Amino acid sequence: MTLPRLLAIVLLTLCPGLVAHAGGKKGENAGISFHMQGDPSDNPKMIFEQFNHGKNMVFRRNPEFMTKDIAAFKPFPSEDGQGFGVVLQLKPNARNRLVAVTNANVNRWMLAVVNGRRVDAVMIDKQVDDGHLVIWKGIGAAEIDAFDTQVPRIGEAKPRR
């Protein structure tokens, strides 16, 4: 094994925070991702388990949609009174992907993850072609404030701060 490779392995072993940060953009405060339900027979490295609606399910590690796919958003108070939900308007390319993904995954679950925290899941009951995704609950006021610095609200031209 070469010295640079050995050094890299030692650094990654001793500094696990480097691996966690490498996947995201520096300064990204409000990361949102959506993960499709997987199959238990999928490669174990490509899925993770999540307790959802009374049973353990598996979801794909690779997200279908991420913060970079969002053109605008609109928060609303969640029905349970515990924080907020958001309507997310997708960019044109992501909007086209949403049509294809939802068409191919009717009767499967999509999980919303905010800042690494699994917050909500929805059953896809039909193809979605309006370009909007909704997280119904689980978003805090601080996360809305952070997202306001990255993405404009629906109907506004630029982020608020």
Rank of each mutant, 00 (worst) to 15 (best):
F34W: 08
L88Y: 10
F76S: 14
L11H: 06
G31F: 01
T102Y: 12
V86A: 04
G24P: 03
V10C: 06
V86W: 00
L90A: 09
P92C: 06
A146P: 00
L18D: 04
N115A: 00
V128L: 14
A30S: 07
T67L: 08
A104M: 12
Q50P: 06
D148E: 15
N93F: 09
V87D: 15
K91Q: 13
P4R: 01
M66E: 11
L90S: 06
P152F: 13
M46A: 15
F76M: 13
K25M: 03
W136T: 07
D145C: 11
Q82P: 02
V58Q: 14
A20I: 01
K158E: 14
M123V: 01
F73S: 07
D80V: 05
L6N: 05
V113N: 13
I32V: 11
A146H: 00
R60M: 11
V106N: 13
I70P: 04
G116P: 03
P40M: 13
E64T: 03
L11D: 00
K91D: 09
G31S: 06
N103C: 12
R160S: 15
V58Y: 08
G85S: 01
A141H: 11
G83W: 04
F34Y: 07
K158N: 12
V134C: 12
G155M: 08
V134A: 12
G23W: 13
H132F: 11
G31A: 02
D39F: 13
S78T: 09
Q127I: 13
G155N: 11
K25S: 05
F76P: 11
V86P: 04
P152D: 07
L6C: 02
G138W: 02
E49V: 04
T149L: 11
Q37C: 01
G85Q: 02
D120V: 05
F48M: 10
A142F: 12
G81D: 06
A157M: 14
N105E: 07
A141L: 12
L18M: 00
T102G: 11
V10P: 05
D39Y: 14
G155I: 04
D125L: 14
K25L: 05
D120Q: 00
A71L: 14
K45V: 08
F73M: 09
D120I: 03
H53Q: 05
A100D: 10
Q89M: 10
G31M: 05
V87S: 15
N29A: 07
E49F: 11
K25W: 07
D39E: 15
S41D: 15
D129L: 09
G116C: 04
A157T: 09
T2H: 02
N115H: 04
F51L: 12
E143Q: 05
N62L: 11
F147D: 01
K158A: 14
D125K: 15
K26T: 03
L3F: 06
P40R: 14
D69W: 11
I70Q: 08
R97D: 08
P159V: 07
H21Y: 03
R60E: 10
G131P: 07
I47E: 14
A100F: 10
K25D: 05
L7M: 05
S78W: 07
